[in-house]
Nucleic acid binder design. Sequence first.
RNA 1: GCCGAAGUGGCGGAAUUGGCAGACGCACGCGACUCAAAAUCGCGCGGGGUAACACCCAUGUGGGUUCGACUCCCACCUUCGGCACCA
Length: 1047
Amino acid sequence: MAEKYVPKKIEPKWQKRWENDRLYRSEVDWNRPKHYAMTMLPYPSGDLHIGHWFAMTPSDARARFMRMRGYNVMFPIGFDAFGLPAEQAAISRNIHPKTWTYNNITRMQRQLRSMGAMFDWEREAISCDPGYYRWTEWFFKQFFENDLAYRGEALVNWSPTLQTVLANEQVIDGKDERTGQPVIQKLMEQWFFRITKYADELLNFDNLNWPEPIRIMQTNWIGRSEGAHVTFTTEHGDPIKVFTTRPDTLWGATFMVLAPEHALVGKITTGEQCAGVENYVEQAARATEIERTAEGRDKTGVFTGAYAINPVNQARIPIWIADYVMITYGSGAIMAVPAHDQRDFDFALKFGLPIIPVIARNDGLTRSYTRLGAWVTDGFTSALDKAAIPHQVDGSDVYVTPDIDQVDAYAAIVQQYLKPGAWTEIVGGAWLFVFKDAVMPFDSLGSEQRILERCRALEPAVADKRTVMEMLYGVEWYRDALYHDAYGTMINSGEFTGTPGIKTDDNGEQQRYAKQAVSHWLEKQGIGQATVNYRLRDWLISRQRYWGAPIPVVFTDGGTIEAVPEDQLPVELPEDVQFMPTGQSPLLFHDGFLNTTASDGSPAKRETDTMDTFMCSSWYQYRYLSPDYDQAPFDPDEGAYWLPVDVYTGGAEHATLHLLYTRFFTKAMRDLGVFDDAAAIAGKNGRNPDELINEPMTVLRNQGQILGEERRGDVIEAAGRADGEKLFADHVKVIDPSTPRVNEPDRIVGEIMRRTEDVLRVDTGDGNQRTVEITSGAVVDIPAIPGKNDVNQLKHHLEIQRMSKSKGNVVDPDELVAQYGADTVRGYLMFAFDWQKGGPWDSQGIQGVVRWLSDVWGLFAEPTADAPGEASAVETTAVEATGDDIATLRRKVHQAIKRVTDSLETFSFNTAIAALMSLKNTLQTMQQTPVIHSDAWDEARNIYLRLMAPFAPHIAEELWGRHGYGYSVHLQSWPEYDEEAAAEQTITLVIQVNGKVRDRIDVPADISEEEAKKLALESESVLRHMSGKAPRNVIYVGERGMINIVV
RNA sequence: GCCGAAGUGGCGGAAUUGGCAGACGCACGCGACUCAAAAUCGCGCGGGGUAACACCCAUGUGGGUUCGACUCCCACCUUCGGCACCA
């Protein structure tokens, strides 16, 4: 027998040889097309995770595929090596961040090499190397000198736990996304990058092949909204600028709200409101983001005592402050239009502020309520019937829903039947109050007062209502007709009344007409102008940390800020630092670092903040081009050839962080001329330079996440002393899982769901969980584990969830490689999951890949001619292979080429491997036939190894060499697909009757339509199902080999 | 609440984008080999139904479009991800 497949014997050997031969070294070659493939660089946390393998090895397979297809492929690797964990290790374990980081990098380099990936290690970039962060600092300096970096005071997210600020993108639900610790709002001087300058350009994804969900997330994150700035004025002449997306609702602005932090708050607050306002402002400042949102929907706020004048109708409206208005968006002040904005509506209702509708409903929903006997006399409903006005009667309650054009007729009927001292109202599609002697429209602050006075006088039950809307809100049936936010026709809006909300223009496009019309008018009046606002805020890059790239500026004694001269870059991090238990940055206390001189020689202090690590990873794709280059961030000769990144792979969690930042970075670099030299060289070589410089990565694909495996907990029988719900067990035994569950006070049979030390939670199968505490002298008996057992050997249930050390569900790739070999681990990761989706790990499933590779090994390692083994079953020497067999073999091989190729193109690694397994099955069957003496057999095996080389590079190389094909399989070209060879000679014609399959017949592939139809109509089964009826229609789908007969 | 993705055998997943649902695997069952087990090999494997066919049901649920729907449209349910007073 031939030797067995032992990955350990071949994998390290080839890894060493490939590296020694610089097999994967990528060099500029203008005669070949380039392909820059890149996976997101890892953070050196200590050990490579199975997630890294899942991200990187399929990407490697695809890079290898592109290389075999003739591309000059660059597939680099590096480390995102600055960041907080290193500093936390320093504080808690007294290891220097640099030592910790480089130790981890060394370990991870070895682990990365065990993947057998085609990384070009000569391009490795490590962001905490001074040679790297020199250029990170250089970029800061360029940004600073070109007004893309600025120092500003802003309300920032401060983490008291980490003693640093965080970017908006790093704060989720008011908590730090990494530690889950709460974040508070704090006013601080910080460094910002002007990413908002590029907001509009970042919304443009033309020519980017990125997943739609990522584009949507970025679009939402940027949050562009079109509207207008309008300037209101206080009674005392202070202007208050507001932003609104609905200038068409201006006439409905019945109050204003300022953010508690708004600059004008102190100035306008009147004496008697002072105490309340100060109190509220202070409370708002103290609240963390969580508290602010945890309060839920209930609005809070206080009146300032001041009034503003609505510039469109001169209405005098109160000014409030409330924390639902944020200082960070727009101008930190709003005009409130409670009739058409949900938040303003809630606020107005709670605080009794007037609500005046100024936009007509699009759905026409109109309602009116009255009471028979109490408010209207008999005969009312028959009058409604006569006028065909829709209504429903429930006891004495009458619910009327008139059409818009019936409103006047309805009002007249109401008046006729109304009892003295009563009224009713019409809401929604029209706003009318019908009294015996008058019909009063509800259309302005003035009419609000008049209606309210009258109703209060008539009806004691509404005497305490502060507004008309509050009164109407008391009728539950009215509630959903009181507020809407549709783009309807303007009403109650002076000369604009009647302006339609939406108009279709000459191109058939729907335009928000009223909005535009009012915006124009505002501009002409000089009280406002059309504006665009963004949710996106400038990128805060300061971190009050040690382990990051220093911000290369100094503060002079004169109070100015100077960038460090280029020839003094990088500002290096001092290594002799003391870490504080408080978590404060040691740079604050390092005199040698702090004290320096300004350009004129006068004393100056260094900036002690360092840069957000997303800064380092925003440009690493450029550093990979030439990690040792010291004239510029990258060598323009390399950039001209390799840029941009063709395929970028990584996790979707970076949608609005890294991926937005790196796009911004590239655009900023372009505008600063950083790409000029490279672009010129590209142009000289006949490439369009624009391709290089607008976007960093052309194609983006996200892999999913590998989750922990589900595990059943041990089923135990526990007996002992019961104490209420709890059982103190002195005997615990692991038993067969199929044993029926028992839940008696002193005896339990069930599955261990959780275990904390010696306390178990046991699922007793009757919907209950009991607590079992194992007493100190208890006997623990686990039959499967010989010897004396203890509590720690009991297995508890594991649910499917993210892997983490604390949950005990981590899969260690090193162990898997030791057990199965890298090729198997690669193959399994690619085969078992939809790569873009991920899923829970399954430790059994890997057997499929183990068998695949050992079958392939058997198929090749076995010499065919004189094998005494399986092959001897066939009388091989005597018989010639038939032409049919050869054709079949070649057909299967070429069909596989197509399937593997198509799958790799679309990142469908699982179907690519399925195709390879399938072809392996065919080859195994064919191995039993004389076809093994044909050239076609040799060709098949040669192609097989080339097809599998991207997935399982080591075994492919080994078998390739053993077959005398030379070195290396990874220098071979991808097999050519021969369509003719792949074509089927016979096909199975599927015959349906009324869409249901009734027969299948084998026919020649080139059968004519007439012939196929004829055969179909002759089929016995088909005739039976047609039950004598004539076909009404026969649909023939030639390319699918299908006929549908409709009767 | 808003935005996005997904829902297919016991499990992971296929299905050329409207044309034979369940490829390729895992697990499982039966058989062979073995003293035995593992490994390996052969057969089976969505549910119902039948002696066996036939046939019926089946891609989260309910409708619709179509000769034909896992695929398209409408409504709903569930799970996961993102955002969350953004004026």
